[in-house]
Structure formats: C-alpha cells, structure tokens
Simulated assay, not measured.
Amino acid sequence: MKVVEQIKFPISAEMELFEEKFKESMLSKIPLLNRITYYIINRKGKQMRPMFVFLVAKMVSEGKFTDKTYRGASVIELIHTATLVHDDVVDDSNRRRGFFSINALWKNKIAVLVGDYLLSKGLLLSVENDDIDILKLISIAIREMSEGELLQIEKARRLDITEDVYFEIIRQKTATLIASCCAIGATSVGANKEEVSKMHHFGELIGISFQIKDDLFDYTESNIGKPTGIDIKEQKMTLPLIHTLNTCSKKDKKWLINSVKKHNNDKKRVKEVIAFVKDNGGIEYTINKMEIYKNKALEILNEYPKSPYKTSLITMIDYVVNRKK
C-alpha cells in the first residue's frame, strides 16, 4: 500500500463522501466556471489538507464525526485551490502538478476571477451554516498567507533575511493553512478552545517542517540527478543559504550575495553556490531544524491515546519530512 493510501485508510469512507460534497460546493450557473472547476477537480493533488481535518477530528473526538467536519474540509480545499490558482498567475506559471495551469489555458483575467469565485464559495459555505469559528480560522489563514508572500517579496529585494524572519515567512506562507486544517478538524467536533489552540500549533509545526523539506529540494538531487537551484535563480532566501551567510567569512558572504543578486541565471555560478552551501554545513543545519519541528509535533500526538487516526497522523509527519518530491 502506498504511503498516502495508508494515511487515508482509516478515513477512506469519509474521503469518498467528501469528494462528492466538494464537487457540489464548486457548482455554478455559469457553464464556463463549471468547465474550469471540472478541470480542477480532475487534476487534484493528494488532498493532504482535508485529510488533516478528518484525522484530527476523529483523533480528538475518539472517532466521532459531523457534517461540520465535511464543511470544514471543503472550505479548506476551496481556499487552498483558490490560492494555487492565484499563485500560478503571480508566478506566471504555465504548469501545475504536470498539467497546464488555469492561467495557461484560460488566461490571467479568468484565472484571477476563478480564484476569487472559489474563495467566496469557501467563505459563504461557512457563513450560510453559521460556522463562525471555522470562518474566523480560515480568514486568519488567508490574511497570514498574503502577509507572508508580501514579506518574502519585500525581503528578497534586499537579501537581508534573518533566520527569525525566514521562519515568520514560512509560518505565514505555508504553515498557517495546515494549522487551520488541524484547528478546524478539532473545532468541528466541539473541542474546547485549549484543544483547538493545541491542534493549531500542531499543524503549524508540521507546516514548518513541510516547507523546510521543500527548501531542501533545491540542494538535493532531482529526478535528473542534479540539484535544481530554482530558489537561488528566483533569489529566494531559504534556510540552507541563510545559515551559510550567517556563518561564513565576510569575503565569502560578499561573493554569495553577489552570486544570488547578479549571477542567479548563471548555471555554473548557481552550482558553485549549491556546493558552497553543502560544504559549509547548510544542509545538515537545515535537516536538524526540520527534525526539531517534527519531534515537537510528535510530542503533541503523544498526549493522545492510541488510535488508527493518531497512527495515520504519525505516518503523515514521517511522510512530510521523508518525501522525495
């Protein structure tokens, strides 16, 4: 059994029903919109975020489940899909998960409007069912994701990101949505404020581990056996590079900054930067940090009794830090 199927196994029936409810939540009277949302649904990813909602809900309530849990998972997936559609416009990206992106097929104007439509459908799903607690959690996540992206853009221009700022960026950009998945899972089954907050923190720790792993891919062998260096080309300051800049000599620091600022499209120079980061302990330091966040997340799970849902969440955490892409 594949790892993702193994994680999904205790909630497989719920995930099937969720698929139907999610399709319904996207419906519109506009044929063009329905064509585009049909395209989105048929090219969906692993659906890790709804899985977090369901697994946390079942773990904290000892197997109970409500319609509110389905709505929470649908809201998360609608918002997540909206952000992906908007991201592809912002990044001028023509591909998403190996397929053409919405903006590549229907142009930017339609892609932005589709993203807005999905966002509004998600918010309305909560409003129409008086799920104000879910609405609050998801609204905070949307605000933080926007702030995180803008903070990264602002700092990338000056290349002066400290480690603290890096963690704040990835907490907002990536971890906040996974945190809201876990908090929504808990709140949907009536967990108290303290437990919802604990699950929010749990999701944040996993989200940070997830993004650190993503940043490491830039320095590890790709499918073609070479490090990608894409983040360096895009002048993104990630943890391996930040740590190296903080620990190397002034002369080397000047060379690194100059390389990222002015020679980021020079393949040979990018390769030299990757080699320098590797030789100066940037990768080991980053892996250690990722392990710290992973272990903190596991510590929170240790407070819960044994269950198939807890086991799946442990497998999910291992998958996040050991995945190959």
Rank of each mutant, 00 (worst) to 15 (best):
E303Y: 10
I314W: 05
D252Y: 11
D91H: 06
I206V: 15
A104L: 01
I184W: 07
T247I: 08
L256F: 12
F217P: 10
K173Y: 04
G63Q: 08
L137F: 08
V56G: 12
D164Q: 13
K193E: 15
H200L: 14
M26Y: 01
S307N: 11
C182I: 02
N322K: 14
D91T: 04
R95L: 13
K268A: 07
V273I: 13
K254E: 15
A156S: 15
S188L: 06
D252R: 06
E299H: 06
F276M: 03
A13H: 15
N302M: 09
K64V: 01
K254G: 11
K8V: 07
M15D: 10
E163K: 14
N246Y: 02
S197K: 14
D131V: 03
K109Q: 08
K296P: 04
V270Q: 10
M59K: 01
K121I: 00
E16D: 11
K29M: 00
Y166E: 07
S93P: 10
K193I: 05
K294I: 02
K261T: 07
V112A: 01
S74G: 07
I208W: 09
S209R: 08
N246T: 12
N108Y: 00
T238A: 08
G225H: 04
E24I: 14
Y39R: 02
F9R: 14
I292R: 03
H86T: 13
L151N: 14
F54V: 01
S259W: 11
K289N: 09
I292Y: 14
M316D: 10
K136M: 02
F167V: 02
G45V: 04
S139R: 01
N288L: 07
L32P: 00
L135C: 10
E291G: 01
D266F: 01
T162S: 15
L301F: 09
K58I: 00
I287A: 04
N94I: 09
T244M: 02
L17M: 10
H243T: 12
M237V: 04
I257W: 12
S146H: 02
P308V: 04
K155Y: 07
P50F: 04
K306G: 03
M26D: 07
T187R: 14
S209E: 03
S139V: 02
I153A: 09
E234N: 15
V320P: 06
E204F: 04
L159Y: 08
K324T: 08
N265K: 12
S25W: 01
E5T: 14
Y319N: 09
I142S: 05
A73R: 03
M59L: 03
C182E: 04
G282S: 11
I232L: 15
F18A: 05
A104E: 03
S139M: 03
F52I: 09
E16P: 00
A141Y: 00
A175C: 11
V75S: 10
I178T: 07
K21V: 06
F276C: 05
K236V: 03
D218W: 04
Q6S: 15
E284A: 10
L113D: 00
K198I: 07
K213T: 10
I132P: 05
L239I: 13
D133C: 06
G63N: 08
K236R: 13
N42Y: 14
